[in-house]
Amino acid sequence: MMNFSRLSRTTLSLVLACFSATAAAESRIDRQTETAVPRAQNLYGIGIGVLPKTSGSDEYRALVLPIINANYGDRFFVNALQAGAWLVDSDDQRLRFGLSAEAKFGWDASKGDRTRGMQDRDFSIFVGPLLRWQTDYGTLNAQWTTDASGNSNGQQFQLQFIKSLIRSPQLRLNGLIGATWNSQKFNDYYFGVRSNEVTANRPFYRADAGVEWQAGLNGVTPGFRDHSLLFGAFVTRLSQTQNDSPITQTRMQPMAYIGYSVPF
Rank of each mutant, 00 (worst) to 15 (best):
P246M: 11
F157E: 03
W213H: 12
N153P: 04
F234S: 13
D113C: 02
P38N: 06
A207S: 10
N187Y: 06
S168A: 15
A179E: 03
N42Q: 04
T146F: 12
S110P: 10
N196Y: 12
L130Y: 09
F204R: 07
E212W: 00
N141T: 13
G128P: 03
F77N: 01
M118G: 02
P203D: 15
F123M: 08
H227N: 14
Q253I: 04
D30W: 01
P203Q: 15
W181V: 01
A36C: 10
N79D: 15
A200K: 10
N243Q: 09
L65A: 11
L51K: 10
D92K: 01
T180W: 00
A21P: 00
M118S: 09
A209C: 05
L81T: 11
R96T: 01
Q32D: 15
I29P: 01
I177A: 11
Q158V: 09
Q240L: 05
E197L: 07
G56Y: 04
I166T: 12
I68N: 02
G73S: 04
G45I: 00
W133V: 15
Q242S: 10
F234T: 05
T139L: 05
V64T: 11
S239F: 00
R202S: 08
N71H: 14
F123N: 14
A62S: 13
P222N: 03
E34R: 12
I29Y: 05
L131R: 05
V78D: 01
R9Q: 13
P254D: 04
V15E: 13
R94S: 05
